[in-house]
């Protein structure tokens, strides 16, 4: 099963960059894995959600989007939800961005265009700061290793799974 992992985040807005940083760590981690055991995966880091995500989908069978989350949970909390059309509310999206397409818009658009794979998951990390500047806050940094290991575990077992394992229903 080909997996596409897309980390989204602005690396110059502190914790907002957690998605891209997760992909960078995952890439390093995969490089340490013997070639024979490496999963069939493509990794992509985007500084902002844009239509290149649609082009990157290709024929992937599973999409994992890693992004910063603010839900009120303690910083560093990891979220994981299965995405289905309509499952993420539009709050803040429709009114803050029309010139760009948000994650929500991109996934809805990809679904409408029939480009989404059967399995789509949103992985999030609760953040505490989007202040200008590089670097994650300590709470978010501490969440990264476990996040990367979970991603790797999912990638290594993906071929064996009929559906995403521990995923909570998102809606």
């Amino acid at each position: 099963m080909t997996i596409l992992v897309v980390g989204i985040g602005n690396p110059w807005a502190s914790d907002d960059g957690v998605g891209g940083e997760a992909v960078r760590c995952l890439r390093d981690r995969l490089a340490m894995t013997p070639a024979a055991g490496r999963p069939a995966a493509r990794l992509l880091a985007l500084r902002q959600p844009d239509a290149s995500l649609l082009d990157a989908l290709g024929d992937c069978e599973r999409l994992i989007v890693v992004d910063a989350v603010r839900s009120g949970a303690p910083p560093g909390t990891r979220h994981r939800v299965a995405w289905t059309p309509g499952c993420v509310e539009e709050r803040g999206v429709a009114r803050t961005s029309s010139h760009g397409l948000g994650v929500h818009d991109l996934l809805e658009l990809a679904a409408a265009l029939g480009r989404l794979p059967a399995h789509v998951e949103l992985w999030g990390v609760e953040i505490s700061s989007t202040q200008p500047g590089q670097g994650l806050t300590p709470e978010v940094t501490r969440a990264l290793p476990a996040l990367v290991e979970s991603l790797l575990a999912v990638m290594l077992t993906a071929g064996d799974e009929a559906s995403p394992g521990e995923t909570k229903p998102g809606c």
């Binding site: 989204i8 985040g9 602005n10 807005a13 907002d16 902002q48 959600p49 992004d67 910063a68 989350v69 603010r70 839900s71 979220h79 939800v81 499952c87 993420v88 509310e89 539009e90 709050r91 803040g92 999206v93 803050t96 961005s97 760009g100 948000g102 994650v103 929500h104 949103l122 999030g124 953040i127 989007t130 909570k168 229903p169 998102g170 809606c171």
Partner: peptide, 21 residues
């Protein structure tokens, strides 16, 4: 510009809460 603010609040809907009208 707004993209960052928007994504900082991706607004995953917590289970059991109604969607905003």
């Amino acid at each position: 510009m707004s993209a960052m603010a928007e994504r900082a609040q991706p607004a995953l809907q917590p289970a059991g809460q109604p969607a905003i009208l």
